[in-house]
C-alpha cells in the first residue's frame, strides 16, 4: 500500500469537538476500505493566508495514511461532499513521519545550526591570564 498525507481545512465556525468527530469519521472511511491511519494531527484554528469562502480562519487536520488508492478516492469523495470542509489535499509521500510534523514543533526548533554550533560565538576572545605580582618583580 502506498503512503499518503492528507490535510483538510474545516470551516471556522465548527467547534473543535466537531472537528475531532470529522477526523474520526474520515479515519473510519479509510479503515473501512482496508487502509490504516497511522497518525492524526490537529493543528487547531489557524489563520488562513487568504479568505476561502469568506472564512478567515480554519481548523487544519493532517492524517497520515497507509492505504490503497481506492481508500483515498473514497476519502476524497467524502471530503468533497462534506460542507464543513473548505479545502483538502492529499499528497503521496515516500515515508510517513512518525513524530509530530513541522507544524507542531514549530516553536521549539530554531533554525538548524547544529553543524556549526550556536550563533555569535566569542569571536576568539580569550580572557587574559590574570597577571600575578611575582611575574613583574623578577
Amino acid at each position: 500500500m502506498a503512503y499518503y498525507e492528507s490535510v483538510f481545512i474545516a470551516r471556522q465556525d465548527v467547534t473543535p469537538q466537531q472537528v475531532e468527530q470529522m477526523a474520526e469519521q474520515f479515519a473510519g472511511i479509510v479503515s473501512a476500505q482496508g487502509g490504516k491511519v497511522t497518525k492524526t494531527e490537529n493543528w487547531g484554528l489557524r489563520n488562513l493566508a487568504y479568505k476561502i469562502n469568506k472564512n478567515r480562519k480554519g481548523h487544519y487536520v493532517l492524517m497520515n495514511l497507509d492505504a490503497p488508492a481506492a481508500a483515498v478516492h473514497e476519502l476524497e469523495r467524502n471530503l468533497r461532499i462534506n460542507e464543513d470542509v473548505l479545502r483538502f489535499m492529499t499528497v503521496t509521500v515516500d515515508e510517513l513521519e512518525n513524530g509530530p510534523s513541522v507544524m507542531m514543533r514549530k516553536s521549539d526548533d530554531r533554525y538548524e545550526r547544529d553543524d556549526r554550533g550556536p550563533r555569535g560565538g566569542d569571536r576568539g576572545y580569550r580572557p587574559r591570564p590574570a597577571r600575578t605580582e611575582t611575574e613583574g618583580d623578577e
Partner: peptide, 11 residues
Amino acid sequence: KRARFMALIPY
C-alpha cells in the same frame, strides 16, 4: 505551490 493551495502562505 502546495502551501499556497492550503492557505499556509499567500499567493
